[in-house]
Computed example of a mutant assay.
Amino acid sequence: MRRETQNILLVLLGGALLKISFSGLYLRYVQKGLLPLLIAAGTIMIGLAVFAIVQDIRRAKAAAEGDHDGHDGHDGDEQQHSHSHSSRSTWLMLLPVMAVFLISPPALGGDVVSSAADTNQTQRSRNLLGELPSGDVIPLSMTEFVTRTAWDESGTLDNRRVKLTGFLTRADSDTFVARLAISCCAADARPLKVRLTGDVPALPNEQWVELTGKVVPKSASEKNSWVPSFTVESSTSVAEPVEPYES
């Protein structure tokens, strides 16, 4: 790969990282806590490219000022021609960069929920369970709701009105509200889903909603892969949140 190609790729890759960092798009790929690392990585890439470009310009000026009498530039032309052929494939590395700049891939959604193994839903330890807040309606993350229905044998959620936020997805004749949780980045996303009963909203798949209702006691079991059921009392369509993933 020619040095010019390397420098261009560094600038574009660094620019792509900074773009998704400052625009908030990085939340579709990684957790919020990794923002400083993304900004640092993008800044370092661009800084290395600028440093290399300055060094190349200085070397070129020094070479131009030297005495090159009798130098045969034929070999250099052949070498440059050879490098131009060998570096063509490296431009394919620009495809993911252009995807970030031009396409902006959406956050993962229902396809991941449908294809992932359901047994990964409740891989949380019992020590995450704490006291539920007071109030007529308890807003809970999907992670906490699914974890409690699987591990909390005391039934603290029974007869408590809960608010859940997620997107709708369907399988066979069942409708689910789902959310994806990540530990680090979108590559390790795991699905969390809840089967809906009662006043199920007649909205398209992938539509984000806020649901208020109650858990069906003892509905999560090993037989149904620990997927709880939720009786919907009211629902509201909402926009996709800025942070689509839970952690």
Rank of each mutant, 00 (worst) to 15 (best):
S87L: 03
H81R: 05
T147E: 00
I103F: 15
T122Y: 11
L140K: 11
I57K: 03
D69L: 09
H68P: 03
S104A: 07
K163W: 08
S82C: 00
A64M: 08
I44A: 15
D152I: 02
S134Q: 15
S84C: 00
P139K: 11
R126S: 14
D77L: 10
M98Q: 05
S87T: 13
A117G: 08
A64Q: 07
I44M: 02
G155L: 06
T119L: 06
R161C: 12
S86K: 09
I138H: 09
T147S: 11
A116P: 15
G130C: 08
G70V: 02
F145R: 09
Q121S: 14
L95K: 12
P96I: 11
L48E: 01
F51H: 03
G73K: 02
G66W: 04
L157T: 07
G42L: 15
D67V: 00
E144M: 15
H68N: 11
K61A: 08
A41H: 01
Q121V: 13
T165N: 12
R161P: 05
A64K: 07
S86I: 08
A49G: 10
P106G: 10
R160Y: 02
R148G: 12
D111L: 03
D77C: 07
L140D: 14
R160C: 01
D69N: 09
T147K: 04
G47C: 10
I138N: 12
V162T: 07
R148D: 10
S141N: 15
T156A: 07
H68C: 00
N127Q: 12
M142P: 12
S82H: 09
S154E: 07
L95I: 15
M93R: 05
T143R: 13
E153T: 03
L92C: 06
H83C: 04
V137Q: 07
Q55V: 10
D152C: 02
S115I: 13
A107R: 00
L92N: 13
G47L: 02
Q123D: 07
S134Y: 12
H83Q: 11
M93C: 13
